[in-house]
Design a protein around this nucleic acid. Structure first.
Length: 243
RNA sequence: UUCCCUAUAUCGUGGCCC
């Protein structure tokens, strides 16, 4: 019950409240378990406080509560989200030494971190790390990689990765298209961006307000106001209400 | 002991602040 409440605060990045619940749990004679510690750790991570997250991580070991895969991944994300890619990558090796094999979540967390930290040189090493460990990339990992390439402005690598994803029989989802459409649009690759939108329609993948916003933005930037307006109209017609 | 619940990864636009 305490963990559920802790999680509710953590998922909103409310670390102060999460810490209060964590203390309350202990005051009532209960021992925090791996989920309690990981939840608190994540609350700090989401609040952009990687050092506090690390403190919780160290604390759990001190109290002989072994961090598991989720704890490590949460700490990797805490560093990655804070732009500390080196620390995030070194945790991949640390968890391995600790007898916990990294999984596809560790990989996609790091792929996303590369994009945030604009570390184009590290991204291929991370794909290699996944491959050498036999970690199969899923749709989230591919989406993360595609997004990071696009954030570097490397749309060719992004499209290459998209192609190899298709070749591996991993099917794109709504998020994949959102990433491609908005990313290509930001780079001014309007024609490519529109092509993916058409694919999305053909495949009957539900169009979200995120995709409509990207498309409207794309037309607006090109000065195609008629298209922008008609996209806005079809958005409403399709039952997707503008916010 | 068993079951259930709770913790980790990917997407848009604009505004305000620095």
């Amino acid at each position: 019950s305490y963990n559920a409440l802790l999680g509710a605060y953590a998922s909103h990045g409310m670390h102060t409240e999460a810490l209060r619940v964590f203390k309350l749990l202990k005051q009532n004679g209960l021992r925090p378990d791996v989920v309690s510690y990981t939840t608190l750790l994540n609350a700090y991570g989401r609040s952009g406080l990687p050092e506090k997250a690390r403190e919780v991580f160290n604390d759990m070991r001190k109290n002989s509560c072994k961090p598991n895969k989720v704890s490590y991944n949460a700490l990797i994300d805490a560093y990655g989200s804070a732009g500390m890619l080196k620390e995030a990558i070194s945790l991949l090796h640390k968890m391995e030494k600790d007898g916990i094999p990294p999984d596809v979540v560790s990989i996609s967390t790091l792929l996303t971190a590369c994009g945030r930290c604009k570390q184009i040189t590290e991204i291929d090493a991370i794909f290699e790390a996944a491959k050498s460990r036999g970690i199969e990339l899923n749709i989230v990992a591919y989406n993360s990689g595609i997004g990071s390439y696009l954030s570097f402005g490397d749309y060719e690598k992004a499209l290459e990765l998209y192609a190899s994803m298709m070749a591996s029989n991993v099917n794109p989802d709504g998020v994949s298209y959102n990433i491609l459409i908005s990313g290509l649009c930001k780079l001014g690759r309007y024609a490519e961006s529109l092509k993916f939108f058409e694919d999305m329609v053909d495949l009957r993948i539900p169009l979200t307000k995120e995709v409509y916003s990207s498309l409207i933005c794309s037309y607006a930037k090109q000065g195609k106001l008629t298209e922008a307006k008609s996209t806005f109209s079809s958005m409403k017609e399709s039952g997707c209400f503008p916010d």
